[in-house]
Amino acid sequence: MSLKIGITRFLGTNCDDDVKKWVQSISHHPEYLWFEDQFNIDDYDMVIIPGGFSHGDYLRCGALAAHTPVMKSVKEFANKGKPILGICNGFQILCEAGILPGVLLKNDSLKFKDEWTSLKVNQNKTIFLNKAQKNQIIRLPIAHGEGKYYAESSTLKKLADNEQIWLTYENNPNGAALNIAGITNENKNVCGLMPHPERALFDWMGGTDGMFFL
């Protein structure tokens, strides 16, 4: 079945075209969602918030994007239980919007990390990873300066108890709590991750594990 997938665009989003091509490559129908506009949540089957440096990463990464009209609709979309995937800056935006708990801080090393990482699939109960096996190790690239997941210890415990930690790093590249590379909300319809599945789709990209996600 072909899905209609909304792809948000903020000032400074730069992975929008990659995500659009990914969606098209598997015969789904992509449509851009401009940050200044709200949208009708019934018009879309899924929303993807791609990476980039929305609004210049000013104030805090994702903070300005999180308070835009399009995110009001994304919140509504999330509350209806519809699937949302936030990649890299998209993950940061979901956290700043309060749709996912916690926040992403500057990497411990202070360095921008651009490299391939091995990730463990901790649970495959989300729509975005149900093609992978639990405990499977997959490879995806990361590209971020602020990917260190942080939350208070009570939140981390809750995330672990509710199986909301869906992806963890095998070798922690940024100092993230509990090696977290991606988390979901309680209902598991909203998923965020720092690595880039859209950069690992075809052999010429260096790997194809991104295809597990859609």
């Binding site: 805090r60 903070a63 999180a66 308070h67 700043e96 926040v103 801080l105």
Partner: peptide, 9 residues
């Protein structure tokens, strides 16, 4: 409400 600061950090 406007996100000027993040109380978590």
């Amino acid at each position: 409400e406007g996100g000027l600061y993040n109380p978590l950090i």
